[in-house]
Design a protein around this nucleic acid. Structure first.
Length: 435
RNA sequence: GCCGGGGUAGCUCAGCCGGUAGAGCGCCGGGCUGUUAACCCGGUGGUCGGGGGUUCGAGUCCCCUCCCCGGCGCCA
């Protein structure tokens, strides 16, 4: 029972309501006016039910209001549930009373609109059943990731969003005014998480991350939710296990709790089931290059994996898989070189199948003061900016590793979306800032 | 940043070799007691993204510019 004695729309169908009087509340999803009858499909967060209005069943004076109902008008109806094969879902509510909270002018979305128009009215578009299903799936993914980490004893911490200097140097930062100085919106919490492992051991954070590139792809946002973990004494392989167990758990929870939403989105759930089983396959960068050469790609050892290459690799696997040991020069300065093979780093990406590609990037971090300082210099970065970071290697350094997961990327794959913008309610990308 | 596509009614689009603006949907009015993207009749609808040029005449041709979409690069 909801506040005010109303019931959730879904329960009209799932509970013993036939012949009983109920109150439903929501918005008019669709309305059909046929002579002396009006059919209104009423939507609430749980579903849609058909409400039938007949003049003879309503109190004096209500009928003119019924005739005025439009899509997205908000209302409360008290009526009797009855079974009728002509009603969607087999049940409908015959209205006895109607209270309109707010009539709606003609709703601008009817189903054939172009993306630019829809993005300008995103605040209205979000009412669609499709967007609702995606947001519910995202909720479940976030809940599952958090559940897994808390269960395994990871501390949740709160790194800053405003930072004083670039973390990786490469990515473009959003600059903001900070009193009489310049500051930047964080693109990763990693360096701060590395600080916190010296007291808490195993830490994680969920924060927005910002990238100022005007990326023109369907896999990039300029603001996205970033789940990052960092563990003291963890080596590369240890955090890969964390990554795969956590992802498998999230997929399992979505399959258990959000099956209806996946089906509404037309997601082929059999494509997700292989991801329930860990471990996920591991291939080295060397092997990836060999596979790509065999597929006819013109690629040499040392080249970074482009979008086409990544997509081609994902076709070899039916579940997420790791690519490990990338050449040092294509990866960030903080990654630890493999002691057995210093030209590659102890870093990895986790790629989702079906062409979705990278959802996680992680590595073991360089824990030696001198080697880290040397790498900072090699990258042309200013050691002054990294003084505090270098201190971590001075005051009781430990081997440690971590990764970052792009939440919207994970949602995109699990929900089977063709664009990352739908994995977040108010996408910030390519300069879009409205609404 | 680069390559490709696009901008015409509230929405989705058509508009030929340059000749003075069209359709469907929506909306308004009327009709209809079982609609599922309802249907039928009538009505309403435009700074053709912006600026400049060629021309008797430009939505259409030329130049500049802004915005959007798809892809690449960068990454999560």
């Amino acid at each position: 029972m909801l506040c005010g004695g109303a019931i959730e729309v879904r329960k009209v169908f799932t509970e013993d309501t036939v012949g009983k009087e109920v109150t439903v509340r929501g918005w008019v999803h669709r309305v059909f006016k046929v002579g002396g009858k009006v059919f209104a499909w009423v939507r609430d967060p749980t579903g849609v039910v058909q409400v039938v209005f007949e003049k003879s069943s309503l109190p004096e004076g209500t009928w003119p209001q019924v005739k005025k109902l439009t899509r997205e008008s908000s209302l409360e109806v008290r009526g009797v549930v009855r079974e009728d094969p002509r009603a969607p879902g087999g049940r409908e509510v015959l209205a006895k009373t109607l209270k309109v909270y707010g009539f709606s002018p003609p709703f601008p979305i009817r189903g054939k609109e172009e993306i630019e128009f829809l993005l300008d009215i995103r605040h209205l578009w979000l009412r669609s059943r499709r967007m609702t299903a995606i947001m519910k799936i995202k909720h479940t993914i976030l809940k599952a990731l958090r559940e897994w980490l808390l269960r395994e004893g990871w501390w949740e911490v709160t790194p800053p969003i405003l930072t004083g200097s670039a973390v990786e140097g490469g990515a473009t930062l959003f600059e903001v005014k900070y009193f009489d100085k310049k500051a930047y919106l964080s693109q990763s919490a990693q360096l701060y998480l590395e600080v916190l492992i010296y007291s808490l051991g195993k830490v994680w954070s969920l924060t927005p991350s910002f990238r100022a590139e005007k990326s023109r792809t369907r896999r990039h946002l300029s603001e996205y939710w970033h789940l990052e973990i960092e563990g003291a004494w963890y080596d590369m392989e240890d955090t890969m296990k964390v990554a795969e167990e956590m992802v498998a758990y999230a997929v399992r929870k979505v399959l258990e709790e959000r099956r209806e939403e996946l089906e509404f989105l037309g997601r082929d759930v059999s494509k997700l089931e292989p991801a329930l089983e860990t471990p996920y396959p591991r291939i080295t960068y060397d092997e990836a290059i060999e596979r790509l050469k065999a597929k006819g790609f013109n690629i040499e050892w040392g080249d970074d994996l482009g979008a086409d290459e990544e997509r081609a690799l994902t076709q070899d696997f039916e579940k997420p898989f790791f690519v490990t040991h990338f050449p040092r020069h294509i990866k960030a300065f903080y990654m630890k070189p493999d002691p057995k093979r210093p030209e590659v780093v102890l870093g990895y990406d986790l790629l989702a199948p079906e062409g979705y590609g990278e959802i996680i990037g992680g590595s073991q971090r360089e824990d030696d003061y001198d080697k880290l300082l040397q790498r900072i210099k090699e990258e042309g970065l200013n050691p002054k900016d990294y003084e505090w970071y270098l201190d971590l290697r001075k005051y009781g350094t430990v081997p440690h590793s971590g990764f970052g997961l792009g939440v919207e990327r994970l949602v995109m794959w699990v929900a089977g979306l063709d664009h990352i913008r739908d994995a977040t309610p108010f996408p910030r990308w390519r300069g879009r800032i409205y609404p």
